[in-house]
Write a protein that binds this DNA or RNA. Structure first.
Lengths: 192, 192, 192, 192
DNA sequence: TATGAATGAGGCTTCATTCAT
DNA sequence: AATGAATGAAGCCTCATTCAT
């Protein structure tokens, strides 16, 4: 390990320290009530150090969002791409999402919630969903219908049932519920 | 009109003045960034006067939520109670919700969004939904399934499609979409 | 004294309290080193109160400048307007300026100095000087020459000799010196 | 060139780099608003490096002043020493000063201004002026009068007209103006 | 009840400076 | 000698809230 990498290590660690502290603080106080000072206080670092890494609590929040998005996105993509049938497409997607939420249960990890989903990585995730839905329609996995509305509906159900998962609901039960709903429902949707 | 009733009038007007100002401020700055001072500044009133009506911006926010909830709830209840068929139950509910959202479109009105839905009147609205779903299952309007999950799914779809309505989507189109989805989907849901 | 005037009095007093404190602080530390906090600390007021009156130390400084300018300007104008001869024009002007400086000697009063003379009242004072020089040329009190340069020369001599007055030099001696210099000198100046 | 002399070179260059940056920064922000960080930022150097050369922005400012003083002083001295007549004494001095100011016009060079003229080299410059005036009185080039006041008057006129030169006024015109003023004026001054 | 200035806690941020590399 | 991240003091300023009028 070279001399320069020691410094690099510290930098990476400090960034992570701040992100971990921010997670706790946002979870405890909510984003609106949380302050940069709260985050610093939850840290062994000096106040000035925070500003070497982030400009504001908004920026930290975005970084957290992006971190989550970067973890969940590949899983969702893979689930959707490997699906050979409509049922698999739906079930694998919901399962991946709910499992992710369930994993974080108990940890101080940030979990997807429907609030300020405007960071670049998150928006990219939604864009991917739109793409994959369009592709699935082409492949015949999904019927041709209003793709935007279908994406919204999937998202809405996913996030709301995720809340139940966070509250302790069984991942497979929620996966089954959502899958059945859409499996039965999409066929009846108005043709685009 | 007596002197006391005149005062009553002023009080009601001041309260409304603050609420209107708060709506604008929350819309412009977001809840997190908005301050009591911002709200006061958007008002002809003095700072001290604010505290005769509300204790904090949280309380104002709650009042706004409650105001919205009080307007939309009776419409939703009526739609659900008068439904004679499953289709009517679903379509009338979605339509009422989307119409409400569409009405506020353009005005500086607050519109339902999935953020901090914890004020009493809003919680009561969710409770009503649960009750009405249970009643509908009893009446045979809805199949017996996980009522909580079904309520969550309905809510999720409603809020996400409402975003599309806010963005200009057609109320009837969204109503048709959501109704078809659930009409086709609920039959397939796992039995409770 | 009405109820409202009591409040008004307090406001006027607070403003003056801040200005007096600022004078001391600027005199002791210099403008560059002085901070708003220093000024507040030299005051019995709360920190927030400062900002009810001034936005920054720059603004306080300007207010001090303006205060001085408002005091000295009428004296200078009168001296110049009442002058019936060239000698009177020069002597009365220098005397008024040096007397003003001498009065403030010992007090914590701000005294004219050549640094950041850009507040509105100060600029107005320079504008008045330009006007009066032009008028004096018209009246024949001063020969027709480069009015701007003459104003600058008068200003330069006045401020530099004022430093000597602050340091204890005799007002009449300095007035005599400056008056003699210009009385002898202006005749020789290049015609405009 | 030995290794040590290479280092010497770098040191001298770094010092110069800082001084050049400081000039820009002081010119743009003013001395009061400028910070050490601003100066460093205007430099390719690291923050710690600054402290190998200067202790504070005050010290840099002083160094800049001294640099200017060291350039202008020999010119002024020579002008005064070589003067064979009163007119030459005055004209050559003013011309040297105004030319120097005019040279720097346009460049990011610091130019003499009446603010914080308290660095050693600058003070030495004023001391030289006093000496030379005394000597000129002895030589009969200047009449015997209050030498301090005369020095102040010369300084005041020089700096104020220099402002006009900075603003674009002609060097010879200003030299002629100032020379004529003192040529005509000094004769009339009160005898010491 | 309305007003709005005063309060001072405390959030935000930058700063000068240090020091391990 | 150069680097640049860490430090924490401290400046700046706004804020929510009080309270005399």
């Amino acid at each position: 390990m070279t001399a320069s990498s020691r410094r690099e290590q510290t930098k990476i660690q400090n960034r992570e320290t701040i992100l971990v502290a921010a997670r706790q603080v946002f979870a405890q106080l909510g984003f609106a009530a949380a302050t940069v000072r709260d985050i610093i206080r939850a840290t062994p670092l000096a106040s000035g150090t925070f500003y070497n890494y982030f400009k504001s609590k908004e920026e930290v929040y975005q970084a957290l969002r992006d971190e989550v998005a970067l973890k969940i996105r590949p899983r969702l993509r893979e689930a959707r791409h490997q699906a050979a049938s409509r049922e698999e497409f739906l079930a694998a997607s919901f399962r991946a999402f709910f499992q992710f939420v369930a994993e974080d249960r108990g940890e101080a990890q940030p979990v997807p919630e429907r609030f300020r989903m405007d960071s670049p990585e998150v928006l990219a995730g939604f864009a991917e969903l739109r793409e994959d839905i369009a592709a699935a329609m082409t492949r015949g996995l999904l019927p041709a219908t209003d793709a935007g509305a279908l994406g919204a509906a999937l998202t809405g159900v996913a996030f709301e049932l995720a809340e139940r998962v966070k509250a302790g609901a069984d991942v497979e039960a929620m996966t089954g519920f959502a899958t059945a709903l859409f499996l039965g429902g999409v066929e009846a949707l108005p043709k685009a």
